[in-house]
Amino acid sequence: MTATAPTAEPFRASIMQIEPQWIDYNGHLNMAYYNVMFDRAIDQMWLQLGIGPGYMKERGGSTFTAECHVRYLREIHLGDPVQVSVWLLEADDKRLHTFQQLRHATEGWLSATSENMSLHIDMGSRKVAPFPPDISARIQTVVAAHSAVPRPEGIGRNVAMPSKR
């Protein structure tokens, strides 16, 4: 585990590059690979929280995604460097509510967002279970730090037809 003191800013994942096989016949990043990059960013943040692969192996806990809402806002193309920022918005004893933004790493424009609900799982029973107290405390520290940051636009959006005016 590489836990560090949380700061009042979203977690920023490593800069990623678009892989050639991820480009679809429209010449842009296929929708499935946005989720791959969001997932890689979450994996990096989970390491900071102490709930990565080592946690699963040593303590028998992991997380599963229960719900995901992705918004595709601007095309990403081969050669574009990207970076994901992650806000840990809320957490209780068994759930984590996160919001992610995928931005062009050098130009800064927003390409996509992903809002997720993750569940803590006891891998022995494969059922939802409370986080251990030390992990829960670490999570609440990050939630408190991230709550000091302005919330990005798009949290809590749902899929619906535009309203008529």
Rank of each mutant, 00 (worst) to 15 (best):
V149E: 05
K164S: 12
T2C: 10
S147C: 06
G108Y: 07
V84I: 00
G27W: 01
F38E: 05
W22E: 12
F131T: 08
D92W: 08
T2N: 14
V149P: 02
E19W: 00
L96P: 12
L102C: 13
F64W: 09
E107Y: 08
I15A: 15
I76T: 15
T7I: 15
H69F: 11
E115M: 01
V128Y: 08
H69N: 14
I121E: 00
G54A: 06
R126K: 11
P20E: 02
R12H: 11
N30R: 05
Y34N: 04
S114W: 13
L110Q: 03
R151C: 03
M1L: 14
T65R: 13
T113V: 09
I121V: 13
M123Q: 08
L73E: 09
I139Q: 08
Q83G: 07
L47V: 14
C68M: 08
R165I: 15
N30D: 02
L119R: 04
Q17T: 07
T141G: 15
R74E: 15
P162M: 14
M117W: 09
D92P: 00
I18K: 02
Y34V: 01
A3T: 05
P10I: 00
L110D: 09
A145H: 02
Q83K: 01
S111P: 06
V143D: 06
V82C: 07
A32D: 00
P132Y: 12
N158F: 12
R126I: 01
W109S: 11
H28G: 10
N158K: 13
Q101I: 15
A105R: 07
V36Y: 05
N35V: 02
V143P: 02
D122G: 01
A91N: 03
A8Y: 10
T7P: 01
S85D: 11
S111M: 10
I135M: 08
T113F: 00
M31D: 10
S163G: 13
P152A: 03
L78C: 11
D134I: 15
P20A: 12
T65G: 09
S163E: 14
D93V: 15
K164W: 12
T141F: 08
P81S: 03
G156R: 01
F99H: 10
A91S: 09
T2F: 14
H146L: 14
S125H: 05
Q44W: 04
M16F: 14
I139N: 07
S136W: 13
A91T: 12
A5Q: 01
T7F: 04
N30K: 04
W109L: 11
A129E: 13
M16C: 03
R59E: 06
A160K: 15
Y25N: 09
L49A: 08
T106M: 14
K127C: 08
W109H: 15
Q140C: 06
E153Q: 06
V142Y: 14
I155T: 14
V86W: 02
I42M: 00
A66K: 15
A129Q: 14
A148H: 07
Y72S: 10
D39C: 05
I23D: 07
P130R: 13
R71H: 14
G60Q: 00
F38N: 07
M45L: 03
K164R: 15
N158M: 11
Q83H: 00
L29P: 03
E115V: 05
R138W: 06
I139K: 02
G154H: 00
V84M: 01
Q17F: 03
V70A: 05
Q21H: 12
I15R: 12
T98C: 07
P162W: 15
D122Q: 04
L29E: 08
G27C: 02
G52P: 04
M123I: 00
R74I: 08
